[in-house]
Simulated scan of single mutants.
Amino acid sequence: MADIAELDQAIRTQLETCSSRKPALRLIQSIKGIGAIAARTILIEMPEIGVLRKQAVASLAGIAPITRQSGRWRRQSFIQGGRKPLRDALYLPASVATRYNPELKAQYERMKAAGKSSKVNITAIKSKPLILANTLVKED
């Protein structure tokens, strides 16, 4: 347990002392639903945040839907690849957002009413804070 605390402190110190990452950390933490751990994970797992297009951000995180089709053969879209630690870190903020963020809660409810599964809904919600974080860091 002490090792985890030491490692957490070292990560926090590195991000706080880096002149380019400190403002990005503050901006990302200002997003409703993104806590300190999720913000640090975003910065660590996606160092290129702030220079990507929104489609590239979702794709790098592995939360962009990929459609597999060939001729008349059609299947459901799925997610694959990307950075699993980042995808995992975004799960909890997304599930909290579906309860407390009015805009994302409304989107979740619309998708649920349309017959989408909760797994698909959460995956769609995961991309919203990440894309917002990318935009905030890009726009400064």
Rank of each mutant, 00 (worst) to 15 (best):
I31L: 08
K32R: 15
L27E: 01
K54D: 15
G62Q: 04
T41R: 01
I31H: 01
I49Q: 02
R83C: 05
Q29G: 05
V51T: 15
R68P: 02
K54C: 14
R72W: 11
S77V: 06
G35F: 05
S77N: 10
R68G: 04
A36F: 11
P65N: 09
A24H: 04
G62H: 02
V57D: 01
R53Y: 09
L43W: 03
V57A: 02
R68M: 08
T41S: 14
S77Q: 11
I37A: 12
A38Y: 03
I34L: 03
G33V: 00
I44M: 12
R68H: 09
P47H: 06
A61L: 03
I37K: 14
A38R: 04
G81P: 00
I49K: 01
F78T: 12
G62C: 08
A58T: 00
V51K: 13
G33R: 02
A64G: 02
P65T: 08
P47V: 12
S59G: 07
R53Q: 15
I44G: 06
G35L: 11
Q29S: 07
A36Y: 10
A58L: 04
R75E: 12
A39L: 08
A61D: 02
Q69L: 11
E48W: 06
P47Y: 05
P65S: 09
L25F: 11
I63S: 00
R53L: 14
R74V: 14
Q76D: 06
L43S: 04
R26N: 09
F78E: 09
V51L: 13
W73S: 12
I34W: 02
G81H: 07
Q55M: 10
I63A: 00
I42S: 00
M46T: 06
Q29V: 04
I79Q: 01
A61C: 07
R26L: 13
